[in-house]
């Protein structure tokens, strides 16, 4: 009997192989979703932005998602490429398609609904619709719970300034239409910068006028930063703001905070807790 089963399994092997068993994942949140779907065994490569979970870093890195080279991608012999929107360049994608590799573009997202759409797109491309629906439903429920927690927070909404970079004392802040602004709103904060879209350099006056209660920034590696000892406190304009006075800088891993992947409900809760923490 067991022999018969083994024989059946062996006979089925070519069938499963035909359903794309060499998957290349381009985009940090796409890789996270592949892992969340339990399909990591099919991954043969990743891009530079795919760093979570830690196990994904063991896979060959084919380069930065917007500057892919065709041979690097083909060298891991993928038969399916899951690619977050915005990956490229277009010439590379054309060459890859010419080489007969199937490319599925996963839509970008900066809302919880977008995350569910991403999950369903990845699941459909991997032929895992059932698991995809399950994961999307789980994320939906977690998001709803997180948003309920956010709504239950008492008191006025804190003004949050997201600082993307601080090169030579010149701050780059997040305006509207950014994933940072979306996360701040979801976590029950108010984006302190208004009047422009995208990430732009801020003048010191704009920083002062923004009067943030909390400064939000990314950390490069996982784990909390050192409270009370952040380089941002040294910035003169920031130091004069309520956030600078109260020494309230919140740092979170970039992919966790802004990736809009399966960890987004968790990120909403973590950011919400940090924004409403007393005596930080």
């Amino acid at each position: 009997m067991s022999r018969l089963l083994l024989a059946t399994a062996l006979a089925l092997l070519p069938l499963t192989a035909a359903a794309q068993d060499r998957v290349l994942s381009i985009g940090g949140s796409v890789s996270e979703i592949v892992y969340a779907l339990g399909q990591e065994g099919r991954l043969v490569g990743r891009d530079t932005t795919s760093t979570y979970p830690a196990a994904v870093e063991a896979l060959p890195d084919v380069g930065y998602m917007r500057a892919l080279s065709p041979e690097g991608v083909l060298s891991v012999s993928p038969d399916l490429i899951l690619m977050e929107a915005g990956a490229g360049p277009a010439e590379t994608l054309a060459t890859l398609e010419g080489a007969g590799v199937k490319i599925v573009t996963i839509p970008g997202a900066d809302s919880p609904e977008g995350v569910e759409a991403k999950v369903q797109a990845v699941a459909a491309a991997l032929g895992q619709e059932a698991r995809g629906a399950e994961l999307a439903a789980r994320i939906e429920a977690e998001t709803a719970a997180a948003l309920a927690t956010v709504a239950a927070q008492p008191g006025p909404k804190p003004r949050v300034l997201f600082v993307l970079g601080n090169s030579g004392g010149r701050l780059t802040g997040a305006g509207s239409d950014t994933s940072a602004a979306a996360m701040i709103a979801l976590a029950g904060g108010v984006n302190a910068i208004e009047g422009f879209a995208g990430y732009k350099a801020l003048t010191d006056e704009a920083v002062a006028a923004a009067a943030p209660d909390i400064i939000l920034a990314m950390e490069s590696s996982e784990g909390p930063g050192m409270p009370g000892d952040d380089p941002l406190y040294a910035h003169a304009a920031l130091a004069a703001t309520p956030a600078g006075q109260a020494k309230r800088v919140v740092r979170m891993p970039g992919m966790f905070l802004l990736g809009f992947g399966p960890r987004t409900p968790e990120a909403i809760l973590a950011l919400n807790a940090a924004l409403y923490a007393k005596g930080n």
Binding site: S69, P70, E71, L74, S75, G98, A99
Partner: peptide, 28 residues
């Protein structure tokens, strides 16, 4: 030389997959 480790004469010595042909003829 390239990430895939393919050699040019494999074009003549064995049957290459479309992706391998593309690496030699449409990329390199």
């Amino acid at each position: 030389l390239g990430a895939s480790g393919l050699l040019p004469w494999e074009l003549f010595s064995r049957d290459l997959s479309p992706a391998e042909r593309a690496i030699l003829l449409d990329i390199r």
